[in-house]
């Protein structure tokens, strides 16, 4: 084990997929299927938000386009 483990971009992305999967799994386990569509939409938005944050220094220009 290296002393200063730092996840790579790929690992971070995979971890986030894992988190999203865990969230969906939690809802299905609790039997609340009806929340799945809502959470899927929100996760999609979340991906967009994260992307915009990663390039936040040009965010104003991106939003101009929309």
């Amino acid at each position: 084990m290296s002393e200063n483990y730092q996840p790579s971009k790929l690992e971070t992305t995979l971890m986030r997929f894992g988190t999203a999967g865990a969230l969906l799994a939690m809802l299905t386990r609790g039997g609340r299927w009806w929340m799945l569509p809502l959470v899927l939409v929100l996760l999609f938005v979340g991906v967009g938000l994260l992307f915009l944050q990663s390039i936040h220094y040009v965010a104003p220009f991106i939003y101009m386009v929309f």
Binding site: Y5, Q6, P7, T12, M15, R16, G18, T19, L23, L42, L43, V45, G46, L49, L50, Q53
Partner: peptide, 14 residues
């Protein structure tokens, strides 16, 4: 949440 807190596992690792 969607921009930060939800992804806690990754944030903790970092």
């Amino acid at each position: 949440w969607l921009g930060d807190k939800l992804w806690l596992r990754g944030n903790l690792c970092e």
